[in-house]
Write a protein that binds this DNA or RNA. Structure first.
Lengths: 198, 198
DNA sequence: GGTTCTAGATACAGTGTGTATCTTCCGTTC
DNA sequence: GAACGGAAGATACACACTGTATCTAGAACC
């Protein structure tokens, strides 16, 4: 046993520093263990603190989970690509989404399940967040496409606007893996473009 | 306390009768409590037996859950409507699916989440089952549509074949509610038919 | 009617949750 | 810079659930 085995000089953390460490530990546990094997004990150990510190902030396990997700999963907003064509824009955007933290959050939240019934949250809320975030991006890409004459505005309905991302999300949710490039291209080329091209 | 409060005449059940009672109790608990609050204790109480009887058959909680789902969720196969038009067939089929036990199973399994990591199952398996079940139905409906000249066979690709049900399933998974008739009609009229009509 | 199987009861160790209490550090204030 | 107060961190507890083990008595089978 060397002296370096002694873990920490016992400095006490406070405020934001501690808060962040707690939520980070919770998030990591969540990602590694999944909701079912997630224990407050383990979070406390990982954060080098005691359960009391966690219970002081979040009265129940679902509360902590919710907070951890909120703190990490949906912070990132995607940049909107501008490749010169709708096709390019859409494909690039979906590829970005594939690797984003939102994707990670979605995978996680889909593995969560049990959490919804507990916490009164549900997938509809998640959807609303995602829709809103991507809605603006889609609007922008489509507006440019109309300017360029690539899309017939008369053929754009709420449903046709959504269709590409609905299919993308659907595939993502079912496989919990990044959507392959082939599928992305297929969605754009076989579904979206034929529906809205002039 | 009347005599009628005495619960049961202590008859012992065996074999299939007992098995069914156990799985029914497990299924009901699952639907009412969700996976996270699901306890083997509660199943035993509901089935008027002891936990030992359950553990004798299913060594762990996920095993019991899996068995309960298998026993109930995917038994029902949908009849294939024949209304005289693809449009009518597809819409009728989705409305049927809305009310089916498979829908109930899907809603449940989506609420499950934690179960997947436990049991090594995942949504991909569910998907495979659903795809296969509905694939035949879709094939049959589309074949009739081609005969009637409603669909251009050249426009049918694996992706266009799937698109209507992908969108249907997606909406179902996100809302965990039956898909409204409006949405069903929209999917068929704004997406599917324009893509494959001659 | 005796044998065998197993339903059903009960007890136990292990683990996790959530509450309560206590000491001790750290930031704030006078 | 000393005193104060709040919160960190430790510890102990009651309760619930899991999974194992053991016992007894009802049902099925010969």
């Amino acid at each position: 046993m060397s002296l370096s085995d002694v873990p920490e000089p016992q400095r006490r953390r406070h405020g934001a520093e501690l808060q962040t460490a707690l939520l980070d530990a919770a998030w990591d546990e969540l990602v590694e263990q999944g909701y079912d094997s997630f224990t407050i004990d383990a979070v406390a150990v990982r954060a080098h603190t005691s359960r009391a510190v966690l219970y002081r902030r979040w009265p129940t396990k679902p509360d902590l989970v919710k907070a951890a997700i909120a703190s990490r999963a949906f912070q990132q907003s995607l940049e909107i690509p501008d490749t010169g064509s709708v096709r390019g824009d859409l494909i690039a955007f979906m590829k970005l989404a594939n690797g984003s933290r939102a994707q990670q959050g979605l995978v996680l939240i889909t593995r969560l399940g049990a959490f919804y019934s507990d916490a009164g949250t549900n997938l509809t809320e998640l959807r609303r967040g995602l829709m809103q975030a991507r809605g603006e991006a889609v609007d922008q890409m489509l507006a440019r496409a109309i300017d360029r004459g690539e899309i017939d505005p008369a053929k754009l309905t709420p449903r046709t606007r959504r269709v590409a991302f609905d299919l993308f999300l659907h595939e993502l949710m079912l496989t919990l893996e990044p959507v392959p490039d082939d599928s992305i291209a297929e969605i754009v080329d076989e579904i979206f473009l034929p529906l809205v091209a002039p």
